Structure formats: C-alpha cells, structure tokens
Amino acid sequence: MPAEKPLAPGIFITGTDTGVGKTLVAAALARHLRDLGLRVGVMKPVETGVTDPAAEGSDAALLRWAATCDAPLQDVAPLRLRRPLAPAVAAEKDKIFVDFGALLEACRRLRENHDFVIVEGAGGLMVPLAGGLLIADLARAMCLPLLVVCRPDLGTINHTLLTVFSAQTMDLPVAGFLLNGMPDIPDEAMSEAPHTLAALASTDLLGVLNRVAAKDEQSKVENLAGLIEKLPTYSILRRNLAWPEKTSK
C-alpha cells in the first residue's frame, strides 16, 4: 500500500465582517508566496453570488490568478452557488447538497500537491454552511490555523475580539489577526485600534495593511502584495503562518 503524501502547511482565512477585504488579503498573500518561489494552492470552498455556477466565482478566480494555481476547479472552488446568501440558505433554496466530506478531500489534495495552501472561508466563522454546521466547523475539520482579517474603523475592536474569543472557545488555533484597509490619514478610532487589539486579543497582530487604490482587483492584489514584506511585523507573520523556507523541486 503506497504511503500517503505529506500534507503542506496552510492557513484558513476568515473575516470579522462582510467587506473587510478578506479575498484581497488572501490573494495578496498567495501572490507574495508565489513570488518567493512557493507552489501555492488556493481554495474557496464555497462561494455564493456566483453568476455562472458552472465556472469559478470572482473570489476563486482572483485567488487562482494570484497564486498561478492550476489545480482543478473541483479543488479550488468545489461549491459555487448562485444566490448571494449564506451558504446553507443558498444551497437549500437551489436544492443543492453541501458535501462536507468533498470539501475536506479537495483541501487534502491541494495540501498534497503544493508547498502552502490558502483557504478563504465564506464570511465569518459563524456563517451557516449546511445543516448544523458552520464555517468554523469546516476550519476545524481542515486542521488549519486561522488568520483573522479585520477592518480598522470604529467597531472593529468588538468584532475582532468576538471572532478571536469564539475561535478559542471552539478550540480553533488562531495564527493571528491582520487589519486591512487602513487609510493614509486614519481617524482617532482607527489609530488606536491596532494597539488596543494587540493588548486584548490574546493572539498576535500580524500586520496593518494600508488601503490600496487601483483600477482593478488584480492591481489591488499586486499593490497589497508589495506591502506585505515591508510590514514591521513581517517576521511574526512569517513565523506564525509557518510557510516553508525552501521550494519543492
């Protein structure tokens, strides 16, 4: 019986709210790691609001482009739903069965064939996936640590702490959190958010990424990827995400 392939390390990216830039951060990390010479696998296990469910949605397509990932559609974007609703609701309305085991198998295949894998969840941890299952249950079953992406403006302290503390209560390992979309001239609440969260969140602040302006999403990803290595917290980010030092041959 052939030995099983070793599984690559990876990260499960979740957000504190809708519109925090989770996909942009996931894609920027994928582009940065690809530029380091790593084979990066990307996955959007479930994407809703997909215009043509026979093809990848916009989030999965952006991740694939950023990583230059050539994995099959069923591994990168195994579940594509037309309605812009929570996955469990969108699937139920279209009478589509959410195969939890198939999502886990797709992740396993990606981890067998890449140096590092980035999985982007749908919304936050408490988004219903199927039946009594949440996105948090998917993250736990994939055995990947969480990277929490949060926004910098007023309210983010509450949302971020709730997300981190919920993850810890559910025994989900948290690699850290990252604030995305900090404006060039932040207001007082934004200026104080990183320090306050770093003191209270019981996990590491992995970076504060500035808001990037560009003509399209791909340009935004490239601009954001260029900021990652310049982060003062870059060594902590690299340590906590544990991506490999060397590429596979």
Rank of each mutant, 00 (worst) to 15 (best):
G176Q: 08
F177E: 00
F177V: 02
F177T: 07
F177M: 07
F177Y: 08
F177S: 05
L178G: 02
L178H: 08
L178N: 05
L178K: 04
N180Y: 02
N180K: 05
G181P: 07
G181W: 00
M182A: 06
M182R: 00
M182D: 02
P183C: 10
P183E: 10
P183R: 10
P183N: 10
P183H: 12
D184F: 00
I185L: 08
D187L: 12
D187A: 11
E188I: 13
E188K: 10
A189D: 13
S191M: 13
A193D: 04
A193E: 06
P194E: 10
P194R: 11
P194H: 11
H195I: 13
T196Y: 01
T196A: 15
T196E: 14
T196V: 15
T196N: 07
A198R: 13
A198L: 08
A199I: 06
A199N: 11
A199V: 11
L200F: 10
L200I: 05
L200T: 04
A201M: 04
A201D: 03
S202W: 01
T203M: 08
T203L: 09
T203G: 08
T203E: 02
D204W: 08
D204A: 15
D204M: 07
D204T: 09
L205W: 09
L205H: 03
L205P: 01
L205Q: 02
L206Y: 04
L206A: 01
L206K: 07
L206N: 04
L206Q: 06
G207K: 02
G207C: 07
G207T: 10
G207Q: 06
L209M: 04
L209P: 02
N210R: 12
N210L: 06
N210M: 03
N210G: 02
R211C: 08
R211Q: 13
R211H: 12
V212R: 06
A213D: 12
A214T: 12
A214Y: 12
A214K: 13
D216W: 11
D216G: 05
E217N: 14
E217L: 14
E217G: 01
Q218D: 03
Q218Y: 00
Q218V: 14
S219A: 15
S219D: 14
K220F: 07
K220P: 03
V221Q: 12
V221P: 11
V221G: 11
V221F: 11
E222F: 06
E222P: 00
E222V: 15
L224Q: 08
L224V: 05
A225L: 09
G226H: 10
G226P: 11
G226E: 11
L227Y: 05
L227H: 12
I228A: 08
I228Y: 06
E229F: 10
E229P: 04
E229S: 15
K230Q: 14
K230G: 00
K230P: 03
K230S: 13
L231Q: 00
L231K: 04
P232S: 07
P232H: 09
P232F: 04
T233W: 05
T233G: 05
Y234T: 01
Y234C: 00
Y234Q: 01
Y234N: 01
S235T: 14
S235F: 03
S235P: 00
S235C: 04
S235Q: 14
I236G: 00
L237V: 02
R238L: 06
R239Y: 13
R239C: 09
N240G: 00
N240Q: 15
N240H: 14
N240K: 15
N240M: 10
A242I: 05
A242T: 10
W243H: 03
W243S: 01
W243E: 03
